[in-house]
């Protein structure tokens, strides 16, 4: 947008030095007005040419998969389709099957609980740590970079490690609790229908803390010290300083962190697959894992795509919120 306004501004001007020269050199040519229009057209053309690589990239790597996924969700897309290319149109049948399945409400509730639980946990712990690291103390930098580790580990590795930690019989967590005599029998973290979702949320919080910590810490650094100094003169210290200075100043960053966090969390797949595979008895089944199972385990690609689109629409709501939030923060 900004590019086109820039160019049109220069074009509407009385003419650049180079342009006037060219005009004077060709007196027999049509009127200068005509000439200017052709130059305008040329410039416009170049604008489009500069856009071409980006447009091609977007169309190929974003547009095509999205369109393909939408089309697929209206087709009876099976393994045979890959070989024959035939995918009969079935209208809304895939959506009807998926939405009326008894598993859909379970997955939807689990997705909501998983997302809310993860976001609240990540944000609260991340913010607390960010505020903590605001203080100056030895090893601050090293500790902060160590906290980034969960973010750097491949998700499959972390879920394998956590699967071992949370094991009922020989897991490290139950051993630890047993040593402290807090529990006497192993807690079935990943194999009890009431605990599995909590355990999975816990692991996802652990993975999400670095992201929240980093962004919120950055936001805190932006708040000028003078505000706190002035505040302390007026008696605003501790909780009051946080309530009346930190929180209002941090609001734009907070909204970005939360909305991005929601969009990332909604589509979490590998952690759940690695930890429980959706079990026990579907108690950690989310829309993302269910869509994966439909497409790649049962080969019902149409239904998998339909469920995937439901997830896309949910994410889209939050993406729009994010765009509005970020526009507001730019305005501010």
């Amino acid at each position: 947008m900004s590019l086109s306004t820039d160019v049109s501004l220069t074009n509407s001007g009385p003419g650049k030095p180079g342009a006037t020269q060219e005009e004077s050199q060709s007196p027999a040519q049509p009127s200068p007005r005509n000439n200017r229009r052709s130059r305008q057209r040329r410039e416009r053309l170049f604008q489009w040419l500069f856009l071409v690589p980006a447009v091609i990239y977007m169309a190929l790597f974003f547009g095509y998969p999205v369109v393909k996924n939408v089309v697929m969700s209206f087709q009876d897309y099976t393994t045979a389709t890959f070989f024959t290319g035939e995918a009969p149109w079935v209208g809304l049948a895939n959506y009807a099957t998926v939405l009326s399945s008894s598993l859909f409400s379970t997955s939807l509730i689990n997705t909501a609980l998983f997302t809310i639980g993860s976001i609240v946990g990540q944000f609260v712990v991340g913010l607390a740590l960010a505020i903590f690291f605001q203080r100056k103390f030895p090893l601050n930098g090293i500790l902060r970079s160590l906290l980034l580790l969960p973010w750097l580990l491949p998700l499959i590795v972390s879920s394998a490690v956590w699967r071992w930690i949370l094991d009922k019989d020989s897991g490290a967590l139950n051993r630890f609790l047993g040593q402290l005599h807090i529990v006497d029998t192993g807690i079935p973290w990943l194999t009890s229908t009431s605990l599995a979702l909590i355990a999975v949320v816990g692991v996802n919080i652990w993975i999400g803390i670095p992201f929240n910590l980093t962004i919120l810490y950055g936001g805190l650094q932006e708040i000028p010290d003078e505000l706190y100094e002035a505040g302390s003169l007026d008696g605003a210290t501790g909780w009051k300083a946080f309530r009346h200075i930190t929180w209002p100043m941090l609001r734009p960053v907070v909204s970005v962190v939360l909305v991005l966090g929601v969009v990332y969390t909604l589509k979490v797949l590998d952690i759940i697959l690695g930890l429980t595979n959706g079990g026990p008895a579907n108690s950690t089944q989310t829309i993302a894992t269910q869509s994966y199972a439909l497409s790649f385990q049962e080969f019902k690609f149409g239904e998998g795509a339909a469920l995937g689109n439901v997830l896309v629409i949910i994410s889209l709501v939050f993406a729009v919120l994010y765009l509005r939030a970020s526009r507001r923060s730019v305005d501010e």
């Binding site: 699967r163 019989d169 026990p280």
Partner: peptide, 8 residues
């Protein structure tokens, strides 16, 4: 006689 971990 079988651990409930069998579920996972």
């Amino acid at each position: 006689s079988v651990s409930s971990s069998a579920l996972n």
